[in-house]
Nucleic acid binder design. Structure first.
Length: 888
RNA sequence: GCGGCUGUAGCUCAGAGGGAGAGCACCACCUUGACACGGUGGGGGCCACAGGUUCGAUUCCUGUCAGCCGCACCA
C-alpha cells in the first residue's frame, strides 16, 4: 500500500472506513498463516474455543477472542512461529433445538415428520449459514487466526478422531453400555450428563403417605416429594437399626391405588432423622433408589415414559404428565384417608440447562465413559504441575470436580451429531464397535446389523479439539510442530464441560497435556451485574458495538476491563471511553505525521537529547517493561492500563506539548531531533498497542516512515531500552511538572484569563536547580503563559505576589490587583498546615527507633528525603507568611 | 452443608506490606496551529466491621456482616 498524504487523515478516526480493508490486507497478505521460514523459531500455538453454530457471537466470545488475540499477536511480533486455529462447534442439542423450532414455526413440521436424513440436511444448511456468519464476526473482531486451518467439529477429519477415541476407549473397557439411571429431559427427549443439569432450590411438598400392612395389622408412613412415582415402587426401606420399624422388616405392604404388594426392606441408606424414617423405593425413577434396588435385587419397573407421561403401570393415571399425576394421586390418597401430613419444604430440583424443563431421573440403556481411571490420571498430572491455572484458584475447583466425577453419559437421543459407532446384530444380539461402517456382525457374521440410532454428547468431540484440529490421529506436521498447544483461554463456566475433558482425553491419547497454561476469565454481565441471557433480553450484540464504535474500541474495553478470573460489566460509556482513547492515539499520530517535514527522517541520536526527550524515552522504557511483565503473567488489564496512561498522560499531554517548542521554532537541528524522537516513540507505542487495538494501529503505521516489515502485524515487538531508564531525569522532569502545575493552579484560582501573560520569579535553592529551570525556561514560558521569567538563588520577591513552593524552589507570581493579601495569607496557611502535617508524619516515623532499625535501609532513606523536602518547603512557606505579616 | 469470589470516590473498577488511584459523573475556566471523542484547574474516600501478625496493615492472617457464584444434597 502506498503511503497516503497525511493531510488526508480525517480529524476523527472512522473505524467503519478502515477495519474491513485492513482485515482483508492481513488475510490476503497471509500474515496469520505460519511462515515456513519460521520453523527454526519457537512455536506458539493456540486453539480457539469453538463458538457454537447455534446463532451468532455474544460479548463473551468477543472477550475470549480479544484476550487470545492479544497473546497471539504479541508472540507473532516477538518472532514466534505462531498459529491460532479457529473453528466452530456443531453444538448438538442447542443447534438441533433451534432448527426444530424454526421448522415448526415456518413449516409446521416436526423433525419426525420430516425424517432423519432430511432433517439432518436442514441442520447442515443452518450450520453453513450461521457458521459463515460467525466466522465473519470473528474477522470483524480482528482475530488474527489462521483461516487456512479452520475446523468444524463434524469435519471428516475430526469425525475420524471421534471414532478413533470411541473405539479405543471401548476396546480398553473405558466405554460401556449400560442400563442406568440418567438425567432425562422430557422436552428435549434425550439423556443429559450430570453437568447439563442445573439444580435450583424450589418450594415443594413432602407428602406423608400411609402404606397399610398387607395383613391389616397396621401401616407404615412414607414421606415423599414424588407421590406420582409410587406405581413404580418396589419396596419400602427402613434403617436396619431403627427400633420403630425393626420388627416390620420382611413384612408386606399394600401399595395404595394399586393391587400390588411390596416388601419392607432394611437398608443403611435410610436416614432415620428425615421424614418418617421410611422411604419408598422406586429404582427406575431415583438414582439412590436404583442403588438400593441393586443391593436387594429388586425389579425396576418404570411408570413414567420418555415423554414425561405416566404409562400403563399407573393404571387410571396413564397419560397424565408428572405434575397432574402428582396432584391427582395426592387427592385420591387423601380421599382414601391415607395422607397423614403435608410438609412445605424447599428442595433442589434438577432442570435441563438447555430448556429449563425439570429433568426426570430415568432408567435407560445408555453409553458411558468410565471416569475413574481417566480422572485419576488427570489429577496426578495437575498435581505434578503440568497444568498452570491463571489465576491459580481455579486449580482447586478443577481438582475437586475430578475427584468426585461420576461416569459420563455420552449418548444423546438426537439426530445432529456424531452417530455412535456401534452396530447391533439382530441375529445374535452382539455389539460391534468399529472405526469404519459395519456391514456384517463381528460375532456371527450376519448382515442384519443396524447402527445405534443415537449420537454422542457434543462435548465428546470438543474434548479432542486441541489435537483433532491439528490432524490427530494422523501424525501430521502440525501435530509434531504445534502440539501441545501453548495456552488455552476460556471462561470459568466451561471448566468442567470442556477443559477437564480435553485434559483427560489429551493425556490418554497423546500422552501429554493439551496445553500447559489455562487462562480463566470471567463472564460478561449487564450494567446491573446480571448475566446476559436471551430470556432476559439484556444481551448486547458485539456487532452492534463494532458498528457504532469500532472493533478496537470493543477490544480495548474488554481487555482493560479484565481482572484475572473476575466477571466484568458491560457499559456503553466504557466503550465510548475506549473510542475516545483510540481517537486520541489517532490524533497524536496525525500530529506526528503532520510535523515530519519534507526531508528524510533523521536518525535518533541519543547524544543530543533534551530533558524532555530523555524523559519520554525513560517513560517508554518503563512502559515496555510494565507491558511485558503484565502480559507475561497474563494480566491483560494491567498491560492495557499502562499503555493508556503512557499514551495519554506522558506522550500526548506532556511530550507532544513539549515538542511544539522545537517544532514551531527555527532551530532546524533541534526540529530534526524532535521529529526523530516523536517517530521513534510513536512507532514503539503503536507496536505495543497493536495486540490490543490492531486496526487503528495498523492503519496509522502504514503512514509512518518506518518500513522494517510488510505490516505492523508482523513487525518486531519493542525491546525495553534499559539504557534509557534514567531516574535522575525523571526527578528533574517531576520538578518541572510540579512547577508548571503550581503556576497553572495559581492562575486558575486567581482567575487569570488563560490568554493573559504573567511574570514569574523563581528563587532556587542551589545552582543545580538553577540550571534545571534555565533548561526548562522555554517550557515554563509556554506552558504558564509568561512574559518574563527570572531565575536565581537571590531573586527578590516581587510586590503583590502569590507564592508557590515546589521541590527546590519558590515561585513568585506578581498579580498586583488580583491579589488579596488576606486571601493569600489564608492560602499559605492552608499550605503550611498541610506541609506541617506531612513533616510531622515523616518525623514521627523516623523518631521510632524500631522503624529505623527494622525497616529496609532504602525505605528509611526515602523517608528521610521526604522529611527533608517537606521541611524545606515548610520553611519557605513560613518565611513567606512572616514577610506578609511584615507587609512585604 | 463444603468451597470460592466480591466489599476502596456518586457510579464502574484498578491497586499494593512503607505518603489512597483511574475512567465516567460533578464544579470552574478555555474554539491555544493533533484531538471538544479535546485542554487546564478543582472538589470528593474512618479502603465493610472487629481482632491478630508486623517497626509499619487499606494490602497478610482469623472471625463477623453483606452481596454473588460453584459443588453436594435425604426420600
Amino acid at each position: 500500500m502506498a503511503t497516503a498524504r497525511t493531510t488526508d487523515l480525517p480529524t476523527v478516526y472512522q473505524p467503519q472506513h478502515v477495519e474491513e480493508r485492513i482485515y482483508r490486507f492481513w488475510e490476503e497478505g497471509g500474515f496469520f498463516t505460519p511462515d515456513p521460514s519460521a520453523k527454526g523459531r519457537p512455536a506458539f500455538s493456540v486453539v480457539m474455543p469453538p463458538p457454537n453454530v447455534t446463532g451468532s457471537l455474544h460479548l463473551g466470545h468477543a472477550w475470549n477472542n480479544t484476550l487470545q488475540d492479544i497473546l497471539v499477536r504479541r508472540r507473532r511480533m516477538q518472532g514466534f512461529d505462531t498459529v491460532w486455529v479457529p473453528g466452530t462447534d456443531h453444538a448438538g442439542i442447542a443447534t438441533q433445538t433451534r432448527v426444530e423450532k424454526t421448522l415448526l414455526a415456518e413449516e409446521g413440521l416436526t423433525r419426525h415428520q420430516l425424517g432423519r436424513a432430511a432433517f439432518v440436511e436442514r441442520v447442515w444448511a443452518w450450520k453453513n449459514r450461521y457458521g459463515d456468519l460467525i466466522t465473519r464476526q470473528v474477522r470483524a473482531l480482528g482475530a488474527s487466526c489462521d483461516w487456512t486451518r479452520e475446523r468444524f467439529t463434524m469435519d471428516e477429519g475430526l469425525s475420524r478422531a471421534v471414532r478413533e477415541v470411541f473405539v479405543r476407549l471401548y476396546e480398553e473397557g473405558l466405554i460401556y453400555r449400560g442400563n442406568r439411571i440418567i438425567n432425562w429431559c422430557p422436552r428435549c427427549g434425550t439423556a443429559l450428563s450430570d453437568i447439563e443439569v442445573e439444580h435450583r432450590d424450589l418450594p415443594g411438598r413432602l407428602v406423608h403417605v400411609a402404606y397399610p400392612l398387607a395383613d391389616g395389622s397396621g401401616e407404615l408412613v412414607v414421606a415423599t416429594t414424588r407421590p406420582e412415582t409410587m406405581f413404580a415402587d418396589v419396596a419400602v426401606a427402613v434403617h436396619p437399626e431403627d427400633p420403630r420399624y425393626r420388627g416390620l422388616i420382611g413384612r408386606m405392604l399394600k401399595l395404595p391405588l394399586t393391587d400390588r404388594e411390596i416388601p419392607v426392606i432394611a437398608d443403611e441408606y435410610v436416614d432415620r432423622e428425615y421424614g418418617t424414617g421410611c422411604v419408598k423405593i422406586t429404582p427406575a425413577h431415583d438414582p439412590n433408589d436404583f442403588e438400593v434396588g441393586m443391593r436387594h435385587q429388586l425389579p425396576a419397573p418404570r411408570c413414567i415414559e420418555a415423554d414425561g407421561r405416566l404409562n400403563d403401570t399407573a393404571g387410571a393415571y396413564r397419560g397424565m404428565d408428572r405434575e397432574t399425576a402428582r396432584r391427582r394421586v395426592v387427592e385420591d390418597l387423601a380421599r382414601q384417608g391415607l395422607v397423614r401430613k403435608v410438609e412445605e419444604i424447599s428442595h433442589a430440583v434438577g432442570h435441563c440447562s438447555r430448556c429449563d424443563t425439570v429433568v426426570e431421573p430415568y432408567l435407560s440403556e445408555q453409553w458411558f465413559v468410565r471416569m475413574a481411571p481417566l480422572a485419576e490420571a488427570a489429577i496426578a498430572a495437575v498435581r505434578r504441575g503440568e497444568l498452570q491455572f491463571v489465576p491459580e484458584r481455579f486449580e482447586r475447583v478443577f481438582l475437586h470436580w475430578l475427584e468426585n466425577v461420576r461416569d459420563w453419559c455420552i449418548s444423546r437421543q438426537l439426530w445432529w451429531g456424531h452417530r455412535i459407532p456401534a452396530w447391533y446384530c439382530d441375529a445374535c444380539g452382539g455389539i460391534t464397535v468399529s472405526r469404519t461402517d459395519v456391514t456384517a456382525c463381528s460375532h456371527c457374521g450376519s448382515s442384519e446389523v443396524r447402527q445405534d440410532e443415537d449420537v454422542l454428547d457434543t462435548w465428546f468431540s470438543s474434548a479432542l479439539w486441541p489435537f483433532s484440529t491439528l490432524g490427530w490421529p494422523d501424525a501430521t506436521p502440525d501435530m509434531a510442530r504445534y502440539y501441545p498447544t501453548s495456552v488455552l483461554v476460556t471462561a470459568y463456566d466451561i471448566l468442567f464441560f470442556w477443559v477437564a475433558r480435553m485434559v483427560f482425553t489429551g493425556l490418554r491419547f497423546t500422552g501429554r497435556m493439551p496445553f500447559h497454561t489455562v487462562v480463566v476469565h470471567g463472564l460478561i454481565r449487564d450494567a446491573e451485574g446480571r448475566k446476559m441471557s436471551k430470556s432476559l433480553g439484556n444481551g448486547v450484540d458485539p456487532v452492534e458495538v463494532i458498528e457504532k464504535y469500532g472493533a478496537d474500541a470493543l477490544r480495548f474495553t474488554l481487555a482493560t476491563g479484565t481482572s484475572p478470573g473476575n466477571d466484568q460489566r458491560f457499559y456503553w460509556e466504557k466503550v465510548e471511553g475506549s473510542r475516545n482513547f483510540i481517537n486520541k492515539v489517532w490524533n497524536a499520530s496525525r500530529f506526528v505525521l503532520m510535523n515530519l517535514g519534507d526531508g528524510p527522517l533523521p536518525p535518533l541520536r541519543r547524544e543530543a537529547l533534551t530533558i524532555a526527550d530523555k524523559w519520554i524515552l525513560h517513560r517508554l522504557a518503563l512502559t515496555v517493561q510494565a507491558v511485558d511483565a503484565s502480559l507475561d503473567r497474563l494480566d491483560f488489564g494491567e498491560a492495557g492500563r499502562a499503555l493508556y496512561d503512557f499514551a495519554w498522560d506522558d506522550f500526548c499531554d506532556w511530550y507532544i506539548e513539549l515538542s511544539k517548542l522545537s517544532l514551531y521554532g527555527s532551530d532546524e537541528a533541534a526540529k530534526a531531533q524532535t521529529r526523530a524522537v516523536l517517530v521513534h516513540v510513536l512507532d514503539a507505542l503503536l507496536r505495543l498497542l497493536h495486540p490490543f487495538i490492531p486496526f487503528v494501529t495498523e492503519e496509522i503505521w502504514r503512514h509512518l516512515p518506518v518500513h522494517d516489515a510488510p505490516a505492523l502485524a508482523v513487525a518486531a515487538w519493542p525491546q525495553a531500552e534499559v539504557a534509557d531508564v534514567d531516574e535522575r531525569i525523571a526527578r528533574q522532569m517531576q520538578v518541572i511538572q510540579e512547577a508548571i502545575r503550581s503556576v497553572r493552579n495559581v492562575r486558575s484560582e486567581r482567575n487569570v484569563p488563560p490568554g493573559k501573560p504573567v511574570a514569574l520569579a523563581v528563587r532556587v535553592q542551589d545552582e543545580e536547580t538553577a540550571r534545571l529551570f534555565a533548561e526548562a525556561r522555554p517550557y515554563l514560558m509556554r506552558f504558564c503563559q509568561l512574559h518574563t521569567l527570572d531565575i536565581g538563588t537571590e531573586v527578590a520577591v516581587p510586590a503583590h505576589a502569590v507564592t508557590a513552593v515546589v521541590t527546590g524552589a519558590e515561585l513568585f507570581i506578581p498579580l498586583a490587583d488580583l491579589v488579596d493579601l488576606a486571601e493569600e495569607r489564608q492560602r499559605l496557611e492552608k499550605e503550611r498546615d498541610r506541609l506541617a502535617a506531612e513533616v510531622e508524619r515523616a518525623e514521627k516515623k523516623l523518631a521510632n527507633p524500631q522503624f529505623v532499625a527494622r525497616a529496609p535501609a532504602h525505605v528509611v532513606e526515602a523517608e528521610r528525603e521526604k522529611a527533608a523536602n517537606y521541611r524545606s518547603k515548610l520553611e519557605a512557606v513560613e518565611e513567606r507568611l512572616r514577610a506578609l505579616a511584615e507587609g512585604v
